[in-house]
Design a protein around this nucleic acid. Structure first.
Lengths: 139, 139
DNA sequence: TATTGTTATACTCTATAACTATA
DNA sequence: TATAGTTATAGAGTATAACAATA
């Protein structure tokens, strides 16, 4: 089997990401969360009062797609909505939301640790700046 | 805005991959291909006679999902099927398929070049082994 | 029994358009 | 006019189950 894709960084990036994501979602299953839910809990916790649309901009999720996600977190009692002005609502975590976040952070942290454990210390030292650079849009 | 996700390699991996994939798919649009189609053309070209199920194993696409993808490439006249035994068919590129692959390779190569151009030479030297290592399943 | 290709189907994720109410 | 939230909907991508034909 000749696989010319094996030397393409873009392809490898995609496969590594997909594999990591499957792993993370599997491990979050027990908490009834998807990776996006976990990311949202982290962001709301770090920025109490943040709005749906601001969260959507950070995570590149459109307003229309944010609505049902936040509605679900709200219905589960993890998130609280408090009107900021007449049209937007500031979000914050409930006590239950904070408790779930704690467990989600454990899952995320061990997931990250497993990921980083796969590479050498040399690679580890450039990993974050490397991925941030790859993420940047060209102009 | 405090964003604790910015320091998580797994999160950055996902965002970098998603951004890169959107870019690639946009650039393949003119050829009427998705990134998966392009990957399949590359693999079929490099391994004439390969079967659907073998391709699915390489790309982690299930048999059930391969069927309509190959059927579409066949209907477009890019791929030819030749029975290997009574149940499996060896795939190869038609002349038209090879012509489209040439253009797809141009798109892919420039996409890869743009991606690699975002990072420093230091990072470049470890990029492929780094991503391969991240991709590996733990045991 | 196991494998190849296929169909049907359901679920998630994503994208667009349109509506409301508010600024 | 522009923005925040929402609803509806369509398109991908992905997952499982089941079937026929063949090994």
């Amino acid at each position: 089997m000749i696989d010319p894709l094996q030397e393409l960084p873009g392809y490898l990036l995609r496969r590594a990401s997909a594999a990591s994501l499957v792993d993370l979602n599997r491990r979050l299953e027990g908490l009834g969360l998807r990776h996006t839910d976990a990311a949202l809990l982290v962001l709301i916790d770090a920025n109490p009062g943040i709005t749906q649309s601001a969260l959507g901009k950070v995570l590149d999720i459109q307003r229309a797609n944010m609505a049902p996600i936040i509605a679900r977190l709200d219905a589960r009692g993890l998130v609280r909505r408090k009107p900021v002005d007449g049209r937007s609502e500031g979000l914050s975590l409930t006590g239950e939301g904070q408790a779930v976040l704690l467990k989600a952070r454990e899952v995320m942290d061990s997931h990250e640790a497993r990921l980083v454990a796969k590479i050498t210390p040399d690679m580890r030292s450039v990993l974050v700046p490397l991925l941030k650079a790859l993420w940047l849009r060209e102009h």
